[in-house]
Design a protein around this nucleic acid. Structure first.
Lengths: 227, 227
DNA sequence: ACCTGAACACCGTTCAAGT
DNA sequence: ACCTGAACACCGTTCAAGT
């Protein structure tokens, strides 16, 4: 009889572990118990292997995080096809990233948008550039727009992911401190906004911002030379 | 004679440490050696105190980070006055946040935009809301725009801060991996963009995005009722 | 009241030893 | 070749002891 709960078989058979299995398990741990829960100890426990066995498949914790980032890219793009309208393609890609961050906030907070140099990242880059190409941009201008767009999307999504993480798993540090006793009405606008501030839906804010951005891009595209 | 380098006086006199001194030191450590350098050990060394003395002034590492976030707010707003044009006020506030993140990338990456409940955060909230009030928005609509604007600015700034951190202090994990051997020209757009991608100036991208956002806000403001 | 030093639990990582 | 277990250096935090 071994530790607790499971098949107390002595040793993991040879080919059990793999990069894919480890990444999937890491993502599940992050989803269930937040960023701090992902340790080698915990990984080993969930894989019912020794903690250090993971080092046969990943060189370090950071390499695991890059692989998780790739997995987020994969999840985001699953089933994506370009739309007829290039703006709809961009909107679709934006919403996919946003939803992935909602589904996996801890993983998104830790590594969304990290450079992975993997296929799925490459697919995402290509999909965005394809849309801008269809919009009429070429060369350096297309790349600038790609950067602005993807940076905007990933920034908003991962920033919101942090908010969710702190809400769900966070130490409640944020709610302890008080505004300094001085100046009760020196900040009238902030004071008046207090009640509204709690009820803001960030997804609504994100959609609004995306609409504004896409409208601006459409207006700019109208001024470009057509092939 | 004590360890090395400094005045080997035995004990720190009573009132030497303070929250302000600790925050300033923490920020300097982050600036010089990146996110991982900020440890209690290092703090104690720089303050020439014992590592645990800091606990008299902050309850935990996280409380220090919140105080650093407040300091970033303070630095950003230093000398700020509303402009005649409300859009110029917003642009000024945006650029201030961006520049603070450039000056203190490690601190910005770790805690920029965190809820601090401090005076300087309150000042920032009030300054943004004041601008939107002047633009003509009221009540819930004003708060929604505040959220969208500040979230956009802080997301872009702290996201860029992470890029800088990984560049300056980072483990060079990102540059090891290769694209999968398959499909050399299955991603033609990404392939064609490769050379441009390296030379993109994120500050230029940020200014462009801010311009787009402010233009959209100005257009929307024109449709609002005037007092 | 504030600072120090030893101690504790935990974490990432290394490595010799098993199969 | 892959998995295990002991060991190492380090980190945040606690606490009794100094002044």
């Amino acid at each position: 009889m071994a530790v607790a709960g499971g098949r107390s078989t002595k040793r993991l058979q040879r080919g059990t572990l793999s990069q894919g299995l480890i990444v999937g398990t890491a993502l599940r741990i992050l989803d269930e118990d937040g960023p701090d829960a992902l340790t080698f100890q915990r990984l080993g426990k969930e894989l019912s292997s020794s903690a250090t066995a993971v080092y046969r498949h990943f060189a370090s914790r950071d390499h695991i995080m890059v692989a998780v980032a790739e997995e987020l890219d994969r999840i985001s793009l699953e089933g994506y096809e370009p739309h007829e309208s290039w703006t709809e393609s961009l909107r679709d890609l934006a919403i996919r990233a946003w939803n992935t961050a909602l589904d996996h906030p801890a993983a998104a907070a830790l590594c969304m948008g990290r450079v992975t140099r993997g296929v799925h990242e490459l697919r995402a880059v290509d999909a965005v550039l394809e849309a801008f190409h269809r919009g009429g941009w070429r060369g350096r201008e297309a790349v600038l727009h790609y950067q602005a767009f993807s940076n905007f999307i990933l920034s908003m999504a991962s920033n919101n992911a942090w908010r969710l993480v702190n809400q769900r798993f966070g130490a409640e540090v944020n709610w302890v401190q008080e505004y300094q006793p001085a100046d009760p009405d020196a900040y009238p606008y902030a004071e008046a906004a207090k009640e509204h501030l709690r009820s803001v839906d960030m997804t609504e804010v994100f959609h609004r911002q995306t609409d504004i951005l896409l409208a601006a891009l459409e207006a700019e595209a109208a001024t470009l030379p057509r092939d």
